[in-house]
């Protein structure tokens, strides 16, 4: 891989580069959730919609496992960002 690719931003919400992701995978942070905790990838407004697949492929490449065997990490509600004022009004019970 070219050194140049290390500058590519993978998580746009938190501005995390491919180089940083590779650096932490090499240190043993080999699951999506561990990379999320240390780099905040997938914690921004898009909740990993932009970066998750790319990071899973990167973990697969570095660990030599098929991408299908890489745990996708935890998905948490809400499914999309919702304004506090809307939530505070409550829903139908």
């Amino acid at each position: 891989m070219s050194e140049k690719t290390n500058d590519i931003i993978i998580c746009r919400c938190e501005e995390i580069t491919l180089g940083e992701i590779r650096e932490w995978i090499a240190k043993g942070y080999e699951t999506f959730d561990e990379l999320k905790r240390v780099l905040r990838v997938g914690m921004g407004p898009c909740q990993g919609r932009g970066c998750r697949e790319m990071i899973l492929r990167e973990i697969a490449a570095k660990t030599g496992k098929p991408v299908a065997d890489i745990h996708p990490g935890t998905f948490r509600p809400p499914a999309k960002p919702v304004k506090l004022a809307v939530l505070a009004e409550g829903g139908d019970k």
């Binding site: 948490r76 506090l84 505070a88």
Partner: peptide
């Protein structure tokens, strides 16, 4: 929880009304 906590937020910090919740756990 989401509803109760959101009520607390907008009462205590009214300027957060338009701020979005991205995650709960």
């Amino acid at each position: 929880f989401l509803e109760m906590m959101s009520r607390t937020f907008v009462k205590l910090l009214p300027r957060t009304k338009g701020v979005r919740v991205v995650r709960q756990w």
